[in-house]
Design a protein around this nucleic acid. Structure first.
Length: 304
DNA sequence: AACCACACCTGTTCGC
DNA sequence: TGCGAACAGGTGTGGT
């Protein structure tokens, strides 16, 4: 699933192919791919054809390509399964191609997306950021990312630490895989209340999130299957370095205890039950206690 | 204002 | 063997 390291790998792959090139044609193959462009496919096409593209940029999991000499950008979110591919013209169409851009060097840019959670839009840009990205927090790779301020904001939340890590308005770029990895590294249970974290713990999990994403980026991201590949169709190699995510039942790299998986907020959490001890159910504010006991998920998919 | 559950999708895997 | 349920999960929205 594309999280920050995967999106950044894609962005880097696009730079040489898009910056300075003109868009010669736009074909929208699936209406859902442009659902976040309210004016529709024809309008999106009209805003791009004949225009020159700038250098691809990114914040969190959002990717955008500025339109040169204009205050607009082509904004993309890869969702769960989105890909950009640079291909030779006339290549046999991948079954999940949702949009095709013709480029002035003769190549084609494909937006491929099996599950159609991703999409494209052309949006106005203000202060260098497309309008649908303004509500997204800075990611830990941004030079302006303020670690101390993010620590304070996290500790003021009344939620659980994993929910906070996944909240793109607090810190962006972290998804389920790297959240689980960061929590494992910091030895924090995913359900630990953020309000009960020390400054050092909150800082640790944010620093670990940045570190694990940096290591993943260095090897091209995490590929479990063909759903995440780079612009040339290549896989990333970080899956073999994961310590928690996808390792249910396998021994913890630190202590050997089998990794456990539990349902969590419509997804799953993988963690070491020995290294990452569950929070005590009390004390805590009554509201938090109530909420915690009422939405506890069932254990699913446990292996012998 | 802050927080949470859920809809949105489709290909694959699993259990019966 | 075949069928259907479960599962993967990021984001926007609407409800509390």
């Amino acid at each position: 699933m594309p999280e920050l390291p995967e999106v950044e790998s894609v962005r880097r792959g696009l730079v040489d192919h898009l910056a300075g090139r003109r868009v010669t044609e736009v074909e929208v193959c699936h209406p859902r791919a442009v659902r976040r462009h309210p004016a529709g496919a024809a309008d999106l096409r009209a805003r791009l054809v004949g225009r020159r593209l700038g250098e691809p940029a990114r914040r969190g999991k959002y990717l955008w390509v500025p339109v040169a000499d204009d205050d607009q950008a082509l904004v993309a979110h890869l969702g769960m399964s989105g890909q950009f591919r640079i291909v030779d013209p006339g290549s046999a169409r991948h079954p999940h191609v949702r949009a095709v851009l013709g480029l002035s060097d003769g190549q084609e840019l494909w937006f491929v997306d099996q599950r159609t959670f991703g999409g494209l839009a052309v949006e106005p840009v203000q202060d260098g950021v497309p309008c649908s990205v303004t509500h997204i927090a800075l990611d830990p790779f941004d030079a302006r990312f303020d670690l101390a301020a993010t620590v304070d904001r996290m500790r003021r939340r009344r939620t659980e630490v994993k929910r906070a890590l996944l909240d793109q308005t607090l810190v962006s770029g972290v998804g389920n895989i790297y959240a689980d990895e960061a929590l494992w590294r910091s030895r924090l249970h995913p359900r630990r209340p953020t309000a009960g974290l020390t400054r050092a713990q909150a800082r640790s999990v944010l620093v670990d999130a940045r570190a694990v994403m940096s290591e993943a980026l260095a090897v091209g991201g995490t590929s479990f299957d063909a759903l995440y590949v780079d612009v040339n169709g290549g896989s990333g190699y970080f899956a073999r370095s994961l310590s928690a995510y996808g390792r249910e039942g396998q021994p913890c790299d630190r202590c050997g205890t089998p990794i456990r998986r539990e349902a969590f907020a419509n997804r799953s959490s993988a963690f070491c039950p020995a290294c990452q001890r569950a929070p005590r159910r009390s004390p805590g504010p009554p509201s938090l206690r109530l909420r915690r006991s009422s939405d506890r998920g069932r254990v699913r998919g446990s292996r012998p």
